[in-house]
Amino acid sequence: MASSSSSSKTGLKKMLTLKSSDGDEFELEESIVIQCQTIKHMVEDGFSLIPLQNVDTKTLTKIIEYMKKHAEKTESNKEEIKNFNKEFVKGSFDDQFELVSAANYLHINGLMDLLCQSIADRINNKSVRAVREIFNISNDYTPDEEEKVRDEHKWAHEGGEFDESLD
């Protein structure tokens, strides 16, 4: 924090370099990058080259796009940000999972909320089988356990058809 406040006082924009897992480097203003808690802590520890070995170039590009836009956030452009967010979450589930894993690792809370809300909206009403397919998860329950889980939630499951589609 100390370094960021002193740099803003002197009017100098402190730059940081982010390095993706593919080895690509991105130079950004510190004020943009510190939306990300993980990087903020590293900046406080004196780092200026930040390797992100969990984030590939494609995902990092998207995340930088998000951080740049949200760094411009003011009282007057709420609508613009809202539209940006709407566009931002369009894409395949695979893209979203890449992004959500990265956002979780980087601790960008706003982006986490945005992505999780979007995934939730998209799996709403889906069948258990469809969600397993989408998340590429195998069922690790034994038949007995599955029965037990079903019983536990009997109160919630009455009627209702779920959507089997995968998009």
């Binding site: 799996i123 009403n125 258990v128 397993r132 069922n139 889980v149 536990e152 939630h153 919630a156 779920f162």
Partner: peptide, 11 residues
């Protein structure tokens, strides 16, 4: 109801 349904996916 959705949350309870998704509990059935896996552990």
């Amino acid at each position: 109801i959705e949350i309870c349904k998704l509990a059935r996916i896996n552990r």
